[in-house]
Amino acid sequence: MDLVIQNLQAGYGKVQVLWDVNLHLNPGEFVAVIGANGAGKTTTLRAISGLVKPTGGRILLGGQDLTGRNPSDIVRLGLGHVPEGRELFPLMTVLENLTLGTAVRPEARAHSAQTLAQVFTLFPRLQERQTQLAGTLSGGEQQMVAVGRALMSRPRVLVVDEPSLGLSPLMTQIVFGALKAVNDTGVAVLLVEQNVGASLKLADRAYVLENGQVVNEGTGAALLADPTVREAYLAL
């Protein structure tokens, strides 16, 4: 398996957010994590990336233990993270922001020209705007940069947090299409997304988080048809 989370516990200070979360991601798989605000979705991704230190459990990437490692080590091992809110450097150009994705992984630096060409193929608009300051881009264009920066590290697993947040329906469709195209190249994708319907249509499998625990899981199609999921998250 590309990613395995076993009995993960994590939180902030004395506030525990995750309680024995178990999930896995097979090679080349597209998996979604859905749930209400405050369910622990972002904390799960931040724990995987080392931005939040787990208080219990284990996280394995390609059989290597990530638990307690710092974020740069985790990137070197093959994890890319597209954070909620994008977290770009607004006074740096598009190209400079993208190049930062190669900073800590020697393999990424060695193949940076090839990967950059792939990112520009995925997002032609970024090639047109590569010398433009990131802070002057539209929200959708900034999301493209955030995805592209993560891809520049040449990850085996890409975790993506709320990519459609604040985007128009058209730009959401473009970003989701890009994530599917990335997944089609063999990169496993773990997606946290507020647009439950769209994410379940993309996902091979999905997990439902409530109050920091996995309460349901299944194929994307099965959860999309599940009356409980439809009532809780799709208003149907």
Score class of each variant (00 low, 15 high):
residue 94 V to I: 00
residue 146 A to N: 01
residue 11 G to E: 05
residue 204 D to S: 13
residue 76 R to H: 08
residue 15 V to W: 04
residue 8 L to M: 00
residue 152 M to Q: 14
residue 101 G to V: 08
residue 36 A to G: 01
residue 125 R to I: 06
residue 210 E to V: 13
residue 18 L to K: 11
residue 180 K to R: 09
residue 197 G to Y: 04
residue 92 M to K: 02
residue 79 L to N: 12
residue 108 A to V: 07
residue 54 P to D: 12
residue 22 N to C: 11
residue 155 P to C: 08
residue 47 A to V: 03
residue 168 S to N: 04
residue 5 I to P: 09
residue 106 P to A: 10
residue 229 V to H: 13
residue 231 E to T: 08
residue 223 L to W: 04
residue 81 H to G: 06
residue 201 K to G: 01
residue 99 T to S: 15
residue 171 M to D: 10
residue 134 A to V: 01
residue 156 R to Y: 08
residue 148 G to K: 05
residue 229 V to S: 14
residue 118 Q to C: 14
residue 90 P to Y: 14
residue 34 I to C: 13
residue 138 S to H: 13
residue 167 L to D: 08
residue 38 G to P: 01
residue 95 L to R: 06
residue 45 L to A: 12
residue 61 L to G: 10
residue 104 V to G: 14
residue 9 Q to N: 13
residue 178 A to K: 08
residue 132 Q to C: 07
residue 236 L to C: 04
residue 102 T to Y: 13
residue 88 L to S: 04
residue 33 V to E: 13
residue 38 G to Q: 03
residue 9 Q to C: 13
residue 25 L to I: 11
residue 185 T to P: 05
residue 234 L to E: 11
residue 177 G to V: 02
residue 144 M to D: 05
residue 120 F to V: 02
residue 63 G to I: 15
residue 145 V to L: 03
residue 9 Q to A: 05
residue 95 L to I: 06
residue 214 V to D: 05
residue 58 R to T: 15
residue 141 E to S: 11
residue 147 V to G: 00
residue 22 N to D: 15
residue 34 I to N: 10
residue 75 V to I: 15
residue 94 V to Y: 01
residue 146 A to R: 00
residue 189 V to Y: 05
residue 164 S to Y: 04
residue 93 T to G: 05
residue 212 G to I: 02
residue 194 Q to L: 01
residue 76 R to M: 07
residue 147 V to D: 02
residue 7 N to Y: 09
residue 209 L to A: 03
residue 107 E to K: 10
residue 16 Q to Y: 02
residue 45 L to T: 10
residue 7 N to L: 09
residue 211 N to Q: 11
residue 234 L to K: 03
residue 25 L to R: 05
residue 70 N to F: 13
residue 76 R to D: 12
residue 173 Q to R: 03
residue 81 H to C: 07
residue 104 V to N: 14
residue 193 E to R: 11
residue 12 Y to K: 00
residue 174 I to C: 00
residue 217 E to S: 09
residue 158 L to M: 13
residue 185 T to V: 05
residue 169 P to A: 11
residue 147 V to Y: 03
residue 45 L to C: 09
residue 140 G to L: 04
residue 60 L to P: 09
residue 166 G to Y: 09
residue 132 Q to M: 05
residue 103 A to L: 12
residue 203 A to R: 06
residue 85 G to Q: 11
residue 163 P to I: 07
residue 29 E to S: 11
residue 185 T to R: 10
residue 26 N to Y: 10
residue 27 P to I: 07
residue 152 M to I: 13
residue 124 P to T: 04
residue 119 V to D: 12
residue 4 V to I: 15
residue 50 G to Q: 09
residue 97 N to R: 06
residue 49 S to Y: 09
residue 63 G to L: 14
residue 134 A to E: 03
residue 185 T to H: 05
residue 201 K to P: 00
residue 93 T to N: 02
residue 196 V to S: 08
residue 70 N to L: 14
residue 76 R to C: 10
residue 202 L to Q: 11
residue 130 Q to C: 03
residue 119 V to P: 09
residue 70 N to H: 14
residue 173 Q to W: 01
residue 214 V to A: 04
residue 205 R to I: 07
residue 23 L to V: 08
residue 49 S to K: 00
residue 92 M to P: 03
residue 196 V to K: 05
residue 4 V to C: 15
residue 201 K to L: 03
residue 41 K to Y: 01
residue 132 Q to V: 07
residue 101 G to M: 10
residue 7 N to S: 14
residue 91 L to I: 00
residue 73 D to A: 13
residue 24 H to F: 13
residue 62 G to N: 05
residue 172 T to P: 01
residue 183 N to S: 09
residue 86 R to F: 04
residue 206 A to M: 08
residue 172 T to R: 00
residue 189 V to S: 12
residue 43 T to W: 03
residue 218 G to V: 09
